[in-house]
Amino acid sequence: MARSDAVELEVAGRSVRVTSPDKVFFPERGDTKLDLVHYYLSVEAEAMRAMGGRPVLMQRFPDGVGGGNFFQKRVPKSRPEWLATTVVSTPNGTRSEALVIEDLAHVVWAVNLGCLGFHVWPSLAADADHVDELRLDLDPSPGIRFEQIREAAFVLRELLEEVGLVGYPKTTGNRGLHVYVGLEPRWDAIQVRAASVAVARELARRREDLITDAWWKEERGTRVFIDFNQNAPHKTVFGAWSARARTGAQVSTPLTWDEVADVHPDELTIATVPGRVAERGDPWRAMRERPQSLDPLLEMVARDQDAGLLDAPWPPVYPKMPGEPPRVAPSRARRPGPDDDG
C-alpha cells in the first residue's frame, strides 16, 4: 500500500492534520499512527471523561515504539490557534505552558506529534488549587507478579469500603494497577498526599507479607509498593485510556472490580479495548457522577499523627517539608559515634 503524506480529519468540529498516517508506531501488529488516532476516536466519550479539561505532560516517540523519546512539558510555539493551554508547575518548580485536553482534537493533535502517553494532572485547569482525584499506585517491585498486584488491589478495595469510599481500578498499561478515588474539589495536593500516605501505611500493617509503604527501595523486598508520592503536588500519572509505548499497543484501561479478578493487562490494546467499551460501557462513569469526600482518609491521617508518626519521605526534587523525617536511605544514615552525645 502506498504511503500517504497526510490526511485531514474532522475531530470535535476542528480540522486536524495527521502527517505520515501509515507510520508504524507499534511493531507487534503493525499498528500505525492513524490506527492510534482511530482508537482514540472510538473511545472519545470515555477519554474525555478521564482527561477532559486537564493539563497533560506529553511523552513523545516521533518514530514510534523503539525509537527515541522525550517528555514535552511545553507546547511548541508552532501550534493551531485553537489549542488550549495553561501554565503549570513541575515538581522542581519550573513553570511551563502545558497542553489542556479541551476536546478530542487536542488528543489527535498530540498523537500527530508522536505522543504515546498522556501524563495527566489530578486537577482541572480551571481549578488548579483543588485536587479531584486520589491516585493509589500499586507499583510492582522486582520479582512481583501481576497476581500479587491483583491481590493487593483487593486488600485496598476492602479498606476503602470499610471507610465508605469506592475505588475505581485501571491497568497502567504495563505491570501495575492504579486505583482512583474521585473527590469533591475541596482539598489541595498536600492533603491528598497525606491521605495516600495513611492508606499505604494501613495496607502495610494489614498485609506486611504482600504490601509495603517503604519509600526506600532497599526496604521493600519482594512486595507491592503503594507509591503515595504519586499524589505529591504537581505530579502527573499515566492517563486512563492512554496507549502505552509498548510493542503491543497496550492501553491503560479502566476496569470493573470483577474484571480485575480475571483480566491480564497485556490483553488490553488499541485493538481490543474499543470492543470492550462498546459492549460494557465506561467502568469509571460513576466516578465522575458521584465524587466523594476525603474526610474518612484524613481521619486516618490524624490517627497516625496522634500516634507520633512523622510524614513519609518526599522525592528528592521537593524542598524539605514540615514533619518530614531525614531524607536519606537507612543504609546511608549516619550512625552515632563514640564522641556523640547520648
Rank of each mutant, 00 (worst) to 15 (best):
W121E: 09
W121F: 15
W121A: 15
P122K: 01
P122W: 06
S123H: 15
S123P: 03
S123Y: 14
L124S: 10
L124H: 13
L124P: 03
A125I: 05
A125L: 02
A126W: 04
A126N: 11
A126I: 09
A126C: 08
A126K: 09
D127M: 08
A128V: 07
A128M: 13
D129R: 14
D129C: 08
H130P: 09
H130N: 13
H130W: 06
V131F: 01
V131H: 07
V131A: 06
D132H: 15
D132G: 07
D132W: 11
D132V: 14
D132Q: 09
D132E: 10
E133G: 02
L134V: 06
L134S: 04
L134T: 04
L134I: 10
L134C: 07
R135N: 13
R135G: 12
D137W: 00
D137M: 00
L138N: 09
L138A: 07
L138M: 11
L138K: 00
P140W: 00
P140M: 10
S141Q: 14
S141V: 06
S141F: 01
S141N: 15
P142D: 13
P142V: 10
P142H: 12
P142G: 01
G143Y: 10
G143D: 06
G143L: 12
G143K: 06
I144M: 11
I144C: 08
I144N: 03
I144S: 00
I144Q: 02
I144L: 12
F146W: 11
F146G: 03
F146D: 06
F146P: 10
E147D: 14
E147L: 06
E147A: 14
E147Q: 13
Q148A: 12
Q148K: 13
Q148Y: 02
I149L: 08
I149V: 15
I149M: 06
I149R: 00
I149K: 00
R150C: 07
R150I: 04
E151K: 06
E151Y: 01
E151H: 04
E151Q: 13
E151C: 03
A152K: 01
A152H: 02
A152T: 11
A152F: 04
A152W: 03
A152C: 08
A153G: 15
A153Q: 01
A153N: 11
A153H: 04
F154V: 08
F154E: 12
V155Y: 14
L156E: 08
L156N: 04
R157D: 15
R157M: 04
R157Q: 15
R157W: 01
R157I: 05
R157H: 08
E158L: 03
E158R: 14
L159G: 12
L160Y: 02
L160V: 14
E161Y: 00
E161G: 09
E161N: 14
E161C: 03
E161M: 12
V163C: 08
L165F: 04
V166A: 07
V166M: 13
V166Y: 12
V166E: 13
V166I: 15
G167M: 01
G167F: 08
Y168R: 07
P169N: 07
P169F: 12
P169S: 06
T171S: 10
T171I: 04
T171Y: 04
T171C: 11
T172Y: 05
T172P: 02
T172E: 00
T172V: 12
T172I: 10
G173R: 03
G173P: 02
G173M: 09
G173K: 07
G173N: 11
N174V: 13
N174H: 14
R175D: 05
G176H: 00
G176T: 03
G176E: 12
G176N: 05
G176D: 09
L177Y: 02
